[in-house]
């Protein structure tokens, strides 16, 4: 949100915007979002509304901020160097997301391959097992020696999860076709394949929602089902949130394409979302392998 500059920007120099109100709005939004949530978790009910207000502010802020950037981009303020800054920003943001997931994968591996055998008496865990939980036998999946959350069954990998894997893999392909169409300047083809990607993503989310319902209603598998439930729902849940975000971004990009944004040479917004989508894809492959199959 540069103050309205009537004149254009000289593309030879790096565009440095002057003055912006979006970040401080974003800070208040985050503050209400998490501050409200913190009170809410402690049983103060108004916290809930403060938190939702924060969320709404955050969404509004993001639309405003990105809107300003898109307007500047369309007005040709950004030269090649600015474009590279955006690319680096996106790449390193995705790397930070990878590390966030790494923490939860780490928790899965650690509990599966270290904690569980120790609880069962292996290696240095002999006395833990003998003194605290004699008779506990290590077997994955587990909800621990105290059977936290009660008996549960897991979701077999070769049904819906496999179907979901294929959906996401296919969405990676359709997105690449769309990208090629953009480069070849074939707009209707671009819109069709981008639309197909969105549909695949949304179907994935529906299947995931159905599966969650099935797990809670029929399998007895919940977030509270010991370590298996914890890792299962936190990993797939965070992934699902990322798919949701990615799908929203794809929808925004679809509308921008429909409005004639992007050129075959310059379409960073499209590429950034595509990278994000592929990242979400790869995370799913890891999930499918380590959460469902192993």
């Amino acid at each position: 949100m540069a103050h309205a500059h009537a004149h254009t920007h000289d593309p030879a120099t790096y565009y440095v915007p002057h003055g912006t109100r979006w970040p401080i709005l974003g800070s208040f939004a985050l503050f209400f979002l998490v501050g409200g949530a913190a009170f809410w978790l402690n049983g103060v009910t108004v916290g809930k509304y403060v938190s939702l207000l924060g969320l709404a502010m955050l969404v509004a802020m993001l639309f405003g901020w990105f809107g300003a950037v898109i307007r500047e981009s369309v007005s040709g303020y950004y030269n090649r160097q600015v474009d590279v800054s955006f690319r680096m920003g996106m790449i390193w943001f995705i790397f930070s997301e990878v590390m966030f997931f790494a923490a939860f994968f780490g928790a899965l591996f650690y509990t599966h391959w270290f904690t569980l055998p120790w609880l069962g008496g292996a290696g240095d865990g002999a006395s833990t097992n003998a003194l605290l939980w004699p008779g506990f036998e290590a077997a994955w999946p587990t909800n621990g020696p105290a059977n936290v959350g009660g008996a549960f069954e897991t979701i077999p990998p070769w049904g819906l999860p496999l179907f979901n894997t294929l959906l996401l893999l296919a969405s990676g392909v359709t997105l690449t076709i769309a990208h090629h169409a953009l480069i070849a300047n074939q707009r209707s083809k671009l819109l069709f394949w981008l639309g197909a990607t969105i549909v695949l993503g949304v179907v994935f989310l529906f299947v995931q929602g159905y599966e969650y319902h099935h797990a809670y209603a029929e399998l007895g598998l919940t977030l509270g089902s010991g370590i298996y439930g914890s890792t299962f729902f936190m990993l797939t849940g965070f992934h699902g949130m990322h798919v949701t975000l990615g799908a929203i971004m794809l929808i925004v990009i679809w509308f921008r394409c429909a409005k004639g944004h992007f050129t075959p040479e310059q379409h960073f917004g499209f590429e950034a979302v595509a990278w994000y989508w592929h990242f979400v894809d790869v995370v799913w492959l890891g999930l499918f392998l380590f959460v469902y199959v192993v």
Binding site: A107, L119, G144, G226, Y228, S230
Partner: peptide
């Protein structure tokens, strides 16, 4: 209700 750091639940 997760059990990441609760040994009784396998954490």
């Amino acid at each position: 209700g997760t059990s990441f750091f609760n040994a009784a639940g396998g954490g």
